[in-house]
Design a protein around this nucleic acid. Structure first.
Lengths: 337, 337
DNA sequence: GTGAAAGCGCTAACAG
DNA sequence: CTGTTAGCGCTTTCAC
């Protein structure tokens, strides 16, 4: 920090008035005469006066900063959400502090600790895959620090939440595959402690049911990482009858699946169709392009930030749940030419 | 912010001693008697006392926060750098505040403004593509706020900087292509106001020279975005003789180029070889896998943070420049089977 | 060995 | 309409 910052005192001294008058003039307090106001504001402009947010925080007991905890910033979806949160928060005078849990429970706990120590006014979280214990969230509740969960919510905590309609997204994806003539659709799913994973699986089942297709236990396989796909997908393709489609819980796994299918001499989408989930940058760059579900991360971020700022204003208002509609994006991986 | 935070006063009141004694006891001041220290520390532990960083900031005139400005968080490279900065800074008691310029000059300026207003102790920046005017950097200099540039440095500002050896990386990439028998190598380059783009082009030229290959003006084409590639690459492929290799300034463009080449009925790497730059997640998911240059973003981030914290400690020390060695990662896109 | 007081920058209740 | 005062949480001189 540099010492050359102009303070209210500096202005007061120069104008030979009191600091409080300067303070009031700057915030257009009705008590202050127009001339004084003009004087003060002119000098403030000239000297590039900026209120010291640290002093304001100390005074007001509020930091005008919100914290974010996401599993990994590198994922397109989370980056988009962060952008949404940032834009909305900054437009409303809030700063943003970002932490990554790296999908580890311990880092999630320590991230929250960091944010609490920094006295953020609220925390927006998307849970790590490995989080089972939720005590750290309860502590936030106890400390009366507002929480908004987005995407990967924690069901044990009452709070504002923003999600997309994961079940609906999955339903759309699988229905699309069925309408394209697929009958033996495998679902590569996420970890069952995450609501989103359960919901996507539920949507998958709903679509199959609706079209009177058999829901086979063995067609729902936990596989949400590139490394897992490496051995799981080949083994699935050896089954008889062979799966003719994969609905994957994320784009990464889908892209990897696509490559594996091709490397085994099968063609996409002719032999095997694939649909992912996210609609990240990736999905345009595979060959063929990846059909997928758009999660509208940016919008989710804005929505989450909006809920947060509303709650900071009024912590007693009832909890809200926002559900964002996903969209099906069709590319080459699921439609025969 | 919640009211339930324990303060030094609370402890003082409970123990019927003065706040200053508590303060001293907590920092193990030699003046304080062992008994008092034990008393204070026990209660502090029991009550989960945490010093209020805002008060500390106001007092000490330092916020223990560093700011980061990157073009876009979604890029694998920048996310990695951020992780490196975060890890190093947090391990040393500093918080991190991240802003995105979205490759816009105005957003870069306003991001810096935000960070300055938040009284960060220093700013780590990677310049936006569109930044020509550098006055905002000079203002930081004038305000005596430490700056560290990483990757996309600003040549007009004296500061600590961390880069990779871009020329060397490009040289390695192009040499590799030459050794694989390529003779007509096109370079899809970045905007020439960025040092990194110039350096990569220079490495490209050096490799060609070393192998007595002709350096043709028209083989160096500014093209660093997926959308540009869409029309530029097809037009390049119509040339006679047809290019037999592309060295691309980033993985995205490379992946897109790969798809375009394939869509035109040419095969990669048989007809056209491709090498990218970054080694992001993407590069493993194209078909064939993308040969590329690893930029070691995480390491760069740690290095940048290290320079920053050193400079915050001692702003008078001479400026440092760290150059990180890139690595060539060979995948299918450049090597015939 | 410990306490009282001042001050970091700002605001707000209370006086005039 | 404007000034004085106190205080947010903490540290640090200066007393005793």
């Amino acid at each position: 920090m540099n010492k050359e910052n102009v303070t209210i005192k500096d202005i007061a001294r120069e104008l030979e008035i009191s600091p409080s008058t300067v303070s009031r003039a700057l915030k257009d307090h009705p008590d202050i005469s127009p001339e004084t106001k003009k004087l003060v504001n002119n000098l403030a402009d000239k000297w590039h006066y900026r209120p010291n947010p640290i002093a304001l925080s100390l005074k007001g007991g509020t930091s005008n900063t919100v914290g974010i905890v996401v599993p990994e910033i590198i994922h397109y979806f989370f980056s988009s959400v962060i952008s949404g949160i940032e834009d909305y928060s900054e437009a409303n005078g809030y700063n943003v502090m970002i932490c990554q849990s790296k999908e580890e429970y311990e880092k999630e706990v320590s991230s929250i600790q960091t944010l609490v120590n920094s006295r953020v006014d609220g925390i927006l979280i998307s849970m790590s895959k490995l989080t089972r214990n939720t005590e750290h969230f309860h502590q936030l509740r106890d400390k009366n620090i507002p929480i908004v969960f987005f995407d990967r919510i924690c069901e044990e905590i009452e709070s504002d939440i923003v999600v997309i309609d994961d079940a609906e997204g999955a339903y759309m994806a699988v229905k699309h595959l069925i309408l394209e003539g697929r009958k033996n659709i495998v679902h590569l799913s996420g970890p069952p402690n995450l609501r989103i994973a359960k919901d996507r699986t539920e949507g998958y089942i709903r679509a199959l049911n609706e079209f009177q297709l058999n829901v086979a236990e063995e067609n729902i396989v936990k596989c949400d990482q590139v490394e897992e796909a490496e051995w799981i997908v080949p083994s699935l393709l050896k089954r008889n009858p062979r799966p003719d489609a994969f609905f994957c819980v994320n784009d990464f796994t889908a892209a990897q699946t696509l490559n594996i299918v091709k490397s085994l001499g099968l063609s996409v989408p002719e032999d095997v169709a694939i649909v992912g989930f996210t609609n990240g940058q990736l999905s345009k760059l595979t060959d063929p392009g990846l059909s997928t579900i758009d999660q509208h991360g940016y919008e989710m971020g804005r929505e989450a930030a909006r809920l947060m700022l509303e709650r900071i204003k009024d912590n007693s208002r009832p909890f809200q749940k926002r559900v964002i509609k996903p969209d099906l994006v069709i590319r080459g991986s699921s439609v025969k030419k």
